[in-house]
């Protein structure tokens, strides 16, 4: 899946995120994989995904400046591949 500013994402329901000094550890209870989130700002964004309509509004709300958006899109793409985040199902 290609992640874009308009993507609608959430933390995968089988993933737990534990903040650490370097960022956070994420653990996927389904595939038993441990993933490293290597920057605190990425952690903030990942945890805020659910509260905003899409990636772009999440980045804005978290105070991520526009010049850094491409690197966050890359980070989210990699996290989607490792199933830390996934496409959010729109209900109702």
């Amino acid at each position: 899946m290609t992640i874009a500013l308009a993507s609608v994402l959430e933390i995968h329901p089988q993933v737990a995120v534990r903040p650490e000094a370097f960022g956070a550890l994420a653990y996927h209870y389904g595939n038993r994989r441990l993933i490293f989130l290597k920057h605190p700002d990425v952690v903030t964004v990942v945890q805020a995904l659910h509260d905003h309509p899409d990636v772009q509004s999440t980045l804005s709300a978290c105070g991520v400046t526009q010049d850094r958006w491409p690197s966050f899109i890359a980070a989210l793409t990699s996290l989607e591949t490792s199933e830390v985040v996934r496409e959010r199902e729109i209900t109702g």
Binding site: R18, P19, E20, A21, F22, G23, L25, L34, F36, K38, H39
Partner: peptide, 19 residues
């Protein structure tokens, strides 16, 4: 952050064990 510096971070210990 490179793999090497991540290992350096781990050597300083985590807030809780991973293993």
């Amino acid at each position: 952050m490179s793999a090497k510096s991540l290992v350096e971070e781990m050597k300083r210990g985590l807030d809780a064990p991973i293993c």
